[in-house]
């Protein structure tokens, strides 16, 4: 495996002192796409929020390229090379597409052209306000903006939310390609397992905040029963097996 970009060790985190993620360890290597899977409420989004600094961990460590991120602010982490595309896409409805690419932190120049290269459709929408874009276009802008920052680590949260699967089927290969050519590590949260596993190298499956399954993507895709069980619950599987 290539050099590690992100390393999470024994992470426990949550809101209002109630742990949503418990004792989670995972890693993302350079150029690697890792899928974080699991039913809703399993703790996937919380994990991403801990990595980008929005939620503080109760225990455990988050390490980016060998550097412990404890005590680092959200914006400082972004400047260190973490690009987080949150569920709400992280865009600003009042700003145009082009303005989103001028919105770098101090001293940063976003590689607007790279984004247009990956998503040619965006170039034509340059002067359109984000609020007027369709859901799919917004998602392209969100991912495009993240890529234009040339991040070390890309966090993608539920790209498929509210979008037809077709759009996501086009977005994800772009991410795959980008990771390969740039060496950026990608941690992908996705509820459409099948889609996620076609582009990912490895996958982790969370259930009720705990890691229940981890394997190479092909292996996970082949392991239908285990996947289903982690989604539909072991009890249900057990009941149904008893019924049939």
């Amino acid at each position: 495996m290539a050099a590690t970009v992100l390393e999470i060790e024994a992470l426990t985190a949550g809101y209002e002192e109630a742990a949503v993620v418990r004792d989670l360890s995972l890693g993302v290597g350079e150029g690697e796409v890792v899928a974080l899977l699991g039913a809703n409420g399993a703790g996937k989004t919380t994990t991403l929020r801990v990595i980008s600094g929005i939620v503080h961990p109760m225990a455990g460590r988050v390490v980016l390229a060998g550097q412990d991120l404890a005590g680092t602010s959200i914006s400082a982490r972004a400047r260190m090379g973490i690009a987080h595309v949150p569920e709400n896409r992280g865009l600003f409805f009042g700003l145009t597409v082009a303005e989103h690419f001028r919105l770098g932190h101090r001293g940063e120049r976003l590689d607007e052209e790279a984004a247009y290269r990956h998503f040619p459709a965006l170039a034509e929408l340059r002067d359109r306000r984000c609020g007027l874009l369709s859901g799919g276009e917004q998602q392209m802008l969100a991912v495009g903006r993240a890529l234009a920052r040339h991040p070390r680590l890309l966090l993608l949260d539920e790209l498929s939310l509210g979008l037809a699967p077709l759009i996501v089927e086009r977005l994800l290969p772009v991410v795959r390609e980008y990771a390969l050519e740039s060496g950026c590590g990608v941690l992908l949260v996705e509820q459409h397992i099948q889609l996620a596993l076609t582009v990912a190298d490895r996958g982790y499956v969370l259930s009720h905040g705990e890691l229940v399954l981890q394997d190479r993507a092909e292996a996970l895709r082949g392991n239908r029963d285990l996947l289903m069980a982690s989604y539909f619950g072991e009890r249900a599987t057990a009941t149904l097996e008893a019924d049939t």
């Binding site: 980008s52 929005i54 602010s73 959200i74 914006s75 972004a78 400047r79 987080h84 949150p86 709400n88 992280g90 865009l91 600003f92 919105l103 770098g104 932190h105 940063e108 903006r145 920052r149």
Partner: peptide, 10 residues
Amino acid sequence: LNAQIAGLSA
């Protein structure tokens, strides 16, 4: 929050 995620210091 989105601005902070984008690396801007509030």
